[in-house]
């Protein structure tokens, strides 16, 4: 990169792409072997089926700094696990309904069907989405949270209630409970 770009680095969006092992991940692979270029801004994560996609993954990606999330799976009727991709479709449509209230543009979370043979199409969709997200600018969720002075890092309880924390008391656990408490300025 040339020196003149150092002053203000151009915005390079980060898009997390959840792909299905049987279709879109292979489509991306095919694009690679066929030397079809697509934007390096997308980071592909392979799932065994798009039906594994929990809305938590999408929200977590955005909360950790992704500028957009691409979801892709086999075309309806072609899912290798009967019709789990319809579950994906329903979850995605539902998630879309809450994004406006959070101020997240619909272009930042997109669903694309792609069969294993559709490398060119998937590469094209990735490029299109990356450009759309680039146009929207950074989402920057972690920086926003840090600016509000919330605690981050070690010692912060995880979001959600801890798993397996409601059963029988653990022997000796009161020691942990009475450790010197942490106070955070």
């Amino acid at each position: 990169m040339s020196g003149e770009q150092v002053a203000s680095e151009p915005f390079e969006p980060v898009v997390i792409g959840f792909t299905c092992n049987w279709c879109s991940y292979r489509a991306a692979d095919l694009a690679g072997t066929a030397r079809i270029k697509y934007a390096p801004n997308v980071r592909l994560i392979r799932l065994m089926c798009s039906g594994r996609l929990d809305p938590t993954f999408i929200l977590d990606a955005l909360a950790r700094g992704a500028d957009g999330v691409l979801i892709s799976g086999c075309h309806p009727g072609e899912c290798h696990y009967v019709d789990q991709n319809l579950n994906t479709l329903r979850r995605f449509r539902m998630l879309e309904r809450i994004l406006p209230a959070l101020g997240i543009e619909p272009q930042r979370v997109q669903l694309v069907w792609a069969s294993a043979a559709e490398g060119t199409q998937l590469a094209h969709e990735i490029d299109r989405m990356v450009e759309e997200v680039r146009g929207l600018g950074p989402l920057d969720w972690p920086a926003r949270m840090a600016a509000a002075g919330g605690r981050t890092g070690p010692g912060v309880s995880p979001v959600g209630w801890p798993a397996g924390s409601r059963g029988e008391p653990e022997p000796g656990a009161i020691k942990g409970a009475t450790e010197p408490p942490g106070v955070h300025a």
Binding site: T56, D83, L89, R91, R93, G160
Partner: peptide, 25 residues
């Protein structure tokens, strides 16, 4: 949220999505 859920709203969305009788957008 039920124990183990990371994001209660996401868990609810999943629950509702799995009972919705819809095969198209």
């Amino acid at each position: 949220p039920v124990a183990g859920a990371i994001d209660g709203g996401a868990r609810l969305m999943s629950a509702f999505a799995s009972v919705a009788q819809a095969r198209t957008a």
